[in-house]
């Protein structure tokens, strides 16, 4: 099998007494497109937030390219509240901030688009280049980094051109139409030079035509930038069309995983989506 890119090991996220993600183990392999689906409130975005360091999971670990990047066990008050299986004290506590995770090569988009609203399209992409630039605030202030700056600008322009956003480069990001804002958010994520791209409902609010285009777009950038893609999505046609494997969550628990065909036939998945009829 291909190289393991992302591995979640028995990940649990508990907010007070509410378990949002419950003992989830999953894998994403290189060059795959994997979808994470489930009814509203199933804990999908919480999984994203645990992987990217926004939340500190209550228990379990996340590995990226074979290296453990996030790991935790119940501590303090959580010790009492934790309802899951206790895994002992051997688990090391690794809890990096989101920027560290991005630097490792995981980029993400957000369910409710989070662009830098007052900045231009160009600047939005340029900001993402800041992290990898070789400079400090003095060299930047005194323009000693001008070669670095020039490289960042050229790369950003090239990226915008590839994404068909070049003509909007000086527009204020929040003035773009919705579909382009989504596209800009993905471009901005690409600018961080990720290995793994995580998309949170990229097709939200799109019509079938736009969704269709988005599907092609995702496949296209995946090949072009050598990416592995993990996405949360509700549009089933999109999911079934481009993802190689699907994980299904319900109430924070993994209820099924497999190829699109397998998942489609799975009775538990059908029940979760349609609700179990009383007399069925």
């Amino acid at each position: 099998m291909a190289e393991n890119i992302l591995h979640l090991e028995r990940l649990t996220m508990q907010f007070g007494g509410v378990t949002a993600v419950n003992d989830l183990t999953m894998d994403v392999y290189k060059d795959e497109i994997v979808a994470l689906i489930g009814p509203n409130g199933a804990g999908k975005t919480t999984v994203f937030n645990c992987i990217t360091g926004v939340y500190e999971p209550t228990n379990g670990s996340v590995s990226f390219c074979g290296k453990t990047i996030v790991s935790n066990r119940p501590q303090g008050k959580m010790k009492k509240l934790y309802t899951g299986e206790y895994r002992g004290e051997d688990l090391k506590i690794i809890s990096p901030t989101p920027d560290k995770i991005t630097k490792l090569g995981i980029a993400r988009t957000f369910q409710n688009i989070r662009l830098f609203k007052t900045m231009t399209v160009f600047e939005n992409v340029l900001v993402a280049k800041h992290m990898r630039a070789r400079q400090n605030f003095l060299s930047a202030t005194f323009r000693l980094n001008f070669k670095e700056e020039q490289r960042m600008r050229e790369e950003s322009l090239a990226l915008l051109e590839e994404q068909g956003l070049l003509q909007y480069k000086d527009e204020i990001a929040s003035n773009l139409p919705y579909g382009l804002q989504r596209r800009l958010e993905i471009s901005r994520a690409l600018a961080t030079e990720p290995k793994l791209l995580m998309l949170d409902e990229p097709a939200a609010g799109m019509n079938p035509q736009e969704t269709q285009e988005l599907a092609d777009f995702i496949v296209q950038i995946k090949d072009k930038y050598n990416l592995t893609v993990l996405m949360i999505e509700h549009h089933m046609d999109l999911v079934m069309k481009i993802s190689e494997r699907i994980y299904v969550l319900d109430f924070g628990k993994l209820i099924a995983h497999g190829t699109p065909e397998e998942v489609q036939k799975n009775q538990r998945v059908i029940d979760a989506y349609l609700g179990v009829a009383e007399d069925a």
Binding site: T52, V54, T97, P98, D99, K100, T102, K103, A107, R108, F110, R114, L115, F116, K117, T118, M119, E123, L126, V127, A128, K129, H130, M131, R132, A133, Q135, F137, A140, T141, R143, N145, E148, E149, M152, R188, T192
Partner: peptide, 23 residues
């Protein structure tokens, strides 16, 4: 400069700025 852009990104959206690798 590049740092000024990072500052503005933090002003506009802290969570997104962090996700773009800004410490």
């Amino acid at each position: 400069s590049s740092y000024g852009r990072a500052f503005k990104a933090i002003r506009d959206d802290e969570i997104a700025a962090e996700a773009m690798g800004i410490n």
